[in-house]
Design a protein around this nucleic acid. Structure first.
Length: 678
DNA sequence: AGCACGCCGACT
DNA sequence: GTCGGCGTGCTC
């Protein structure tokens, strides 16, 4: 007798269709079984979720069962259910997005062939447990804490304090206790953390570790997924998309650099992989460790409230003291100095000694805008409400939002005046400027100074980042100019000076998280300096600022993250901002700004019909900070509530109104729960 | 979102 | 006379 199954399929978010559809099957299939089912005129992948009771009219049979792939576990399904509910997305969408894309388009025969090639038995974990790297007292304590306490833990330690060794030994302990156990190791961006991956493969053997990230080819992703799903892989190293990889024997989850904004997805389901990792640990009974030198304020607050256990790693290992922080008062400098004379002298001194310096400027290109002196023309992007950035290297005007690029005009396109010039400066100009200023400076061998730049533009070509990093490591470069991307992950042994050229923007930004990001960036960048113990006592971090007395810089000088966090949390509490309130953002895209705002206004009014709306503050619709990108107008509306639960309940009831009120003038809408940038 | 059906302009 | 433009409508 045929049974009726409830099956999760990826139905579009804007359709009236639910995510769980009913299909007939000749035999009962256990929940978690992967199947292929007809949907409209095509056949799609589905996950059996359970039994259905009422047969809808015109119910169709399951087309096929993916043989040889064990069902997904109940814990995995709970995690998916939680994520779909919390981030206000379809269950099927979230479930299917967590599966490797290739699973969707392989035929049964192709899959059988892949499975045959796949290793299913667990290879011996061949690391030598008796020959572990020696740890200091704090590390030993940390490893013991992780091993015996369920967590979640915050592993709080500066760059160079030996977090990685704690991770490695925590995994080793877990495996010693549970030979079938598996660990999920999350990193913000896989290409920025090659050292971590190397450490894991060196310690445990490459055959024990699989990675999951968007840079992999579809066959590689399927292979990694199958290795994790079958239990053969002991460790899964993944970016945020790996947070819901199927890992049936998951016992330990490590989230490195947990404060990193990359963990928050910015399109599709806007989930936080870090937050989901914590929830997943709870569901699966796995220990969660969040690691950071500058935790997110959400995590820090959880520690203060006793929800997370704090583990300190206060000492730098194999590296000396943290760099001395020097604040340079830009009010005291000659007018229009880009680099203060004192800082320039310090850089020149380093060049002469054969040491390296790193200059940070968070702006790509030569100048952020080109302007005409005769009329009011500026290099606007025709498709976006933003300026196009002047790139001198190929004499182009490029929009950093939509990618639109054009050669620089000879004369002002508006009045024909020839006198158009760059305003402000980016990394290209800083690189040029530094090279000019240091033209007379010689390296110890008498050769000329070498200045290089690392940013998204200089590393666009494949292998270019690695090539440039190798040049820095090989000391072929004396002064390195770059954006925040150089501050992340790379371990520069010979850098003894790091300077933030113009960090003031973040102090008074309308984005309340800007100071948090700046502090983290500067701490991380400072950690780049003096990792070589022999040079550490003379390593310095310079900060150029018109507000040198700002508490953020004072905390930075003292290397005192807790003081910075305390001050920030006080401000957040006074202003009723996260983590003291919970936010969601509704975004709407349209060809017309007014239509987008009208739609949001209509859903705002509909909110009054939703029970529990009195616990929610809804702010009026406003244009997105960059209102137009690629000719699409964007508007948004902020919701706030002191209660996460109330906000959750409200959003899931309100969602139906968002569907119903949408018309064809609205290209798309989305709810962003716990948005990172507003 | 796909992927159909459906009804009007330039091609062999 | 057809190939194909993308408007609208449905998917257990």
């Amino acid at each position: 007798m045929p049974v009726l199954l409830s099956i999760a399929v990826s139905t579009p978010a804007h359709s009236t269709l639910g995510s769980l559809l009913s299909y007939e099957s000749e035999r009962v299939l256990s929940p978690g079984t992967l199947v292929r089912v007809p949907l409209g005129r095509r056949e799609v992948l589905g996950v059996v979720w359970g039994l259905a009771d009422e047969p809808p009219p015109g119910v169709k049979p399951v087309s096929s069962v993916l043989e040889g792939v064990p069902p997904l576990t109940a814990a995995w399904r709970s995690g998916i259910e939680f994520a779909a509910q919390y981030y206000q997305r379809g269950l099927g969408e979230v479930a299917l997005a967590a599966l490797p894309p290739q699973l969707k388009d392989l035929s049964a025969e192709q899959l059988a062939r892949r499975l045959k090639r796949q290793r299913t038995e667990t290879p011996e974990c061949n690391f030598d447990a008796t020959n572990l790297v020696a740890t200091n007292a704090e590390q030993t304590l940390a490893i013991g804490q992780i091993d015996t306490h369920p967590g979640p833990h915050l592993l709080f330690g500066v760059t160079g304090s030996g977090k990685t060794e704690v991770y490695l030994q925590a995994v080793a302990r877990m495996l010693a206790r549970n030979p079938q156990g598996q660990a999920l190791v999350m990193v913000p961006e896989i290409n920025l953390t090659p050292q971590l991956i190397n450490r894991f493969t060196e310690r445990f053997g490459a055959e024990q570790v699989v990675s999951m990230h968007s840079g992999m080819t579809p066959p590689q992703r399927l292979q990694s997924w199958l290795a994790a799903h079958s239990g053969a892989a002991r460790m899964v190293l993944a970016t945020r998309l790996g947070v819901f990889a199927s890992i049936p024997h998951l016992k330990l989850i490590l989230v490195d650099e947990e404060h990193d904004p990359s963990y928050k997805a910015q399109d599709g389901a806007r989930y936080s992989a870090r937050d989901l990792a914590v929830m997943r640990g709870k569901i699966e009974g796995a220990t969660v460790v969040l690691g950071s030198a500058t935790p997110s304020l959400e995590t820090w607050n959880a520690v203060l409230q006793g929800r997370y256990q704090r583990i300190d790693l206060p000492e730098r290992i194999g590296a000396g003291a943290l760099p001395t922080v020097r604040r340079l008062d830009m009010n005291q400098q000659p007018p229009k100095s880009v680099i203060a004379p004192l800082l320039l002298a310090a850089i020149a001194e380093r060049v002469a000694r054969g040491e390296q310096s790193l200059l940070l400027l968070n702006r790509r290109g030569y100048a952020p805008v080109l302007a005409c002196h005769a009329c009011d023309w500026k290099s606007d992007c025709p498709h976006c409400s933003a300026y196009r950035v002047f790139h001198k290297i190929d004499r182009s005007l490029r929009c950093h939002h939509c990618g639109h690029a054009e050669p620089v005009p000879r004369a002002c396109p508006q009045c024909g005046n020839l006198d158009i010039s760059p305003v402000g400066r980016g990394t290209e100009k800083l690189e040029e400027h530094v090279a000019e200023l240091l033209a007379q400076t010689k390296r110890p061998d008498g050769s000329a100074v070498r200045v290089a730049r690392i940013d998204a533009d200089s590393t666009r070509a494949a292998g270019e980042l690695e090539r440039q990093l190798a040049m820095v490591h090989g000391q072929e470069v004396d002064v390195l100019v770059g954006t925040q991307m150089v501050a992340k992950g790379h371990d520069f042994r010979h850098i003894t000076l790091v300077a933030a050229i113009n960090p003031d923007g973040a102090l008074f930004s309308s984005d309340f998280r800007a100071p948090e990001r700046l502090f983290s960036l500067l701490m991380q960048a400072g950690g780049r300096a003096g990792r070589n113990a022999l040079m550490s006592e003379k390593s310095e971090m310079w900060v150029q600022s018109f507000y040198p007395q700002h508490p953020l810089f004072a905390a930075l000088k003292a290397h005192d993250y807790p003081a910075f966090a305390a001050q920030q949390l006080k401000e957040r509490q006074a202003a009723g901002m996260p983590p003291y309130s919970h936010q969601a953002l509704v975004r709407a895209d349209s060809r017309n700004q007014q239509a987008a705002q009208d739609y949001l206004q209509a859903v705002l009014e509909a909110a009054l019909l939703v029970p529990g709306h009195e616990y929610i503050t809804i702010y009026p619709p406003v244009p997105h900070p960059v209102a137009r990108v690629a000719n699409v107008e964007r508007a948004q509306m902020l919701l706030e509530s002191p209660s996460r639960k109330a906000l959750q309940r409200f959003l899931s009831d309100w969602r139906a109104h968002l569907h119903a009120l949408r018309d064809k003038s609205i290209l798309r809408w989305a709810i962003d729960v716990d948005p990172l940038s507003i």
